[in-house]
Amino acid sequence: MSLLTMIIKMSEGLSRTCAIFFLTLIFSLPLGMVVTLLRRSKNKIISSITRAVISVIRGTPLMLQLLAITYGPYYLVGLTVSRNKLVPVVVAFSINYAAYFAEIYRGGIDSISKGQYEAADVLGYTKTQTFLRIILPQVIKRVLPSITNEVVTLVKDTSLAFTVSYQEMFTIGKEIANSQTSFTPFLVAGVFYFVFNALVDFVMGKIEKKLNYYH
């Protein structure tokens, strides 16, 4: 198989790679905020349960979570594994990344001085207004570099979808590598990821720059 054929075949999986990437971000970025709010809840039961869940998700391999969510329903209640693996893959990725984002947000929220809350309180802002208009915009700016880090990792982590044979770029490359006994598909995959992440860096850099109007 020629290099060009490999590249074309693997490119066909890129749309699925992108699907995992974007859908995971769309779900996990807001979900992470919800998890942070639960984690910071004044209700001790809610906050400790959330803390425990975060700890389990961060403490076990994403690969294991992918397998559990894809095949777990079959082993537990006998549900047939759907042929479209995108749903379980995105669910597993979203939960996993939400746990990491939640901890990043938490650090960001904790870093905002008490004075900001007090100033808003005296000016008459409600708790919700204070969070959305005063605290959150500052948190976003502060956590952006850490978020970028996670997003870069996510690009590479999409390759883990091969464990449930979801036909994204890396899975296709791995299959070609096996059938052709060739290492070339892995090199191609490496280049793909590198270019993808160069784009991520560029976009996140732009956003960071845009938020640089104050410090």
Binding site: G115, E118, A119, L123, G124, Y125, Q129, I134, P137, K141
Partner: peptide, 27 residues
């Protein structure tokens, strides 16, 4: 009432003008 703090506690992400106008308009 209004309160002026020792540490100012201005909102850093708002311009000076917006620091003044945001609460009267929103609240």
């Amino acid at each position: 009432f209004g309160l002026v703090f020792q540490q100012f506690n201005l909102f850093p992400h708002f311009s000076v003008l917006k620091n003044l106008t945001h609460a009267p308009i929103l609240v």
